[in-house]
Structures are given as C-alpha cells and as structure tokens.
Nucleic acid binder design. Sequence first.
DNA 1: ACACAACCATAATGGCGTTATGCTGTCCAC
DNA 2: GTGGACAGCATAACGCCATTATGGTTGTGT
Lengths: 174, 174
Amino acid sequence: MREWIPISTSPKGRLALAAVQEFGARPFDEVTVGELAAAATVTTGALYHHFGSKLGLYAFVRDDVEQRMLDRMEGAIAASPAPSGRSTAVMAALLIGFDFAVREGFLRILGDPPAGADHDRLAELLNATTTPASPVLGRVLAAAWRAALVAVAEGSDSTQAREALAALEFRLAS
Amino acid sequence: MREWIPISTSPKGRLALAAVQEFGARPFDEVTVGELAAAATVTTGALYHHFGSKLGLYAFVRDDVEQRMLDRMEGAIAASPAPSGRSTAVMAALLIGFDFAVREGFLRILGDPPAGADHDRLAELLNATTTPASPVLGRVLAAAWRAALVAVAEGSDSTQAREALAALEFRLAS
DNA sequence: ACACAACCATAATGGCGTTATGCTGTCCAC
DNA sequence: GTGGACAGCATAACGCCATTATGGTTGTGT
C-alpha cells in the first residue's frame, strides 16, 4: 500500500492492509467481509462506510498494486530498443510483471480477479502495445499471464511457472 | 447432450438440457438453481436428487461437452504428421477445439469454469502433448484458449478471437 | 454553543445454495 | 396380492453471507 494511508493506525488503512493480505492469498469468494473486518479489528460497518462494498475494497487495493505493476511494465516496454509493437518486448514486460507479482506476494489479487471485475487494464496495455491491435490478443495474453500467477498461488514452482510463461510467443499479422 | 438421456422427456434430461443452455450463455454465478429448475419445469428438489448440487449439475454437463471437444483435439493431435510434442500440432488442436466450442455455443461452459471446478482436463491434455512437460505450460495455454472463448461470449467477433488465438506460439526447451 | 457531517457499531433484511422432511408411485419378496 | 423398500420429486425450513438501515459518538466549522 502507499504511504498516504497510515497503515495500522487508521481503520481504513488497516482494512486496506488486511485486504491486500487476504485477497492476495485466497480467492475472492473465499474471504468474507467479516474476516476482513475482524483482521482490521473493526466491524463491517466501517468497511462499508469507507469502501461501499466488498468489491469496492478489492478494487481499491487492486488498483494500487496493479498501477505499480503496470508502471514497471510500461517502463520496460518504453526502454525496449526494438520498434514498438514487437512480440519480444511485450513478453519481456510480462516477465517483469510476473517477477514483481511473485516477489510482492500479489498472486491472487492480480492473477485471480473476481467475477465482477471490469476494466482489464493489463489487457488494455497489451492491446495498446501490440500492433496491429486485435482487441482479443491482449485479453488472451493477460489470461495466460494470470494463469501462471494462479499456478504459483496453488503451489507450483515459481521458476517453472516463469519458464512456461517465457515459452510463449506470438506473431503479429503483417 | 448425448442421446442416452431422453431429453425433454425425463426431468433429469430436461435439467441437463436447461443447464447446457443456461451455463453456456451466462456465468456460473449468475444462474440460480431456481432458474434451472424452472426451465426444466421441476423444483429444486429434483435437481438435488439427481445431481447433488449446483456444481454437480454443472460438472455433469461440462464433462459431456468437454469430452466431445477433447476427442476432437486428440484426434487432431494424433493425425498430426509431425513428431509428438510439436508446438504447431498443439496450436492446431486448440483451434479445432475453439471452432467446435463456438459452433456448438459452448462458450461459457467451456471458457468460464466456476471457482470450484477442479481437474482441468484441457490443461492435462496439453501437458501430456507438449514435451518436455512443464506442468504450468498446459494451464497457461488452456487459460489463453478460454480467454478467447469468453471474449466471444462477451461479444467479440469470433473470427478476430480465432486469429488472436492463432497468433500464439510457444517454443519448447531443448 | 450548535449544527452537521464523518466515522463506526449493531441490528435487521434478503437472496441463494443447501438440507430436511414427507408424499407418491413402482417393483420385487414372500 | 400385499407389505416394504426405494426411487423420484415437491415443499418447507435452515444457514451463510453480502448488503442495508439505524443510531450513537466524535470532531469541526461558524
């Protein structure tokens, strides 16, 4: 979490911290609002006051860690010497994001979004980078990337997962 | 559905037929057991008598359509002239399965499995085919394949989705 | 001081999957 | 042919969980 929320002091900060930990380790459906509130030593009333809904709390913390990951990936793509839209640059960025998510423990929170999670920003970035833009290719690549993360969350060796992801390539039309 | 269940005559057959239609078009969580039962002109009592749970009914119909798809994919892989474990044969099989799922309308039922859906048979087939077998690569490829299906279910052009899937490749270690 | 909002706890409410219970027919065992 | 067991199904609880309603407390601007 960013520092502009005093973690472990304010109830809102404790809720956000608890959400990162719980949503990072377990699927969305398996963590209840009661658990979140209890982990933050508040009641569900505080949760709904600050975040509106369970999905709202999830979106809040996910937007945060997702932004940090996207910043790194965009940086990697921008630093790529090859002309924009190259397959290798995109795959390198995906590996950067993978390493970040694994290192920080953001496995489920980035790899296993809940049903109502709209707006796939990772897919959008991939779409914007790959040329010519096929609206589906970004989603396909994002899904593959997330599957590697979930595999790690479920116990697969992260090195093997990374290699499986690195084995992917894609060719762009003309 | 196969013919060994007299569709539209027995309550069990009507439930299975309703499940194929409802689960094929909408996400698992958005279809209720009451809707399933109503579509089959029975009550939830019949559903739980025959299938044990909502997930049980889903698994029953999914196993059926999944088996049909896997048969086609395995056939395509077996018919491939190249030595076993080649990337192109696997991708060709994935496209065969994609066409089948799109044509039969099995978009969500094969592309958007619910949370508790264990035993990813598609991933297992891909793992068994790709050599050397990385347990994660099959899952990654299966996830990419499903993402293309879900994209079609959400309105994307199926031709574009197919091309995005066809753009994927992967290289196998040594 | 006083209004008023932010903050948060407590107590309903409602949807939905599941379970419990009971009724009805059918199919052997005797 | 009759009694009992059992499949097939309806009906009515039950329990979990997200959400909402409500109310009290604390701070803050005026």
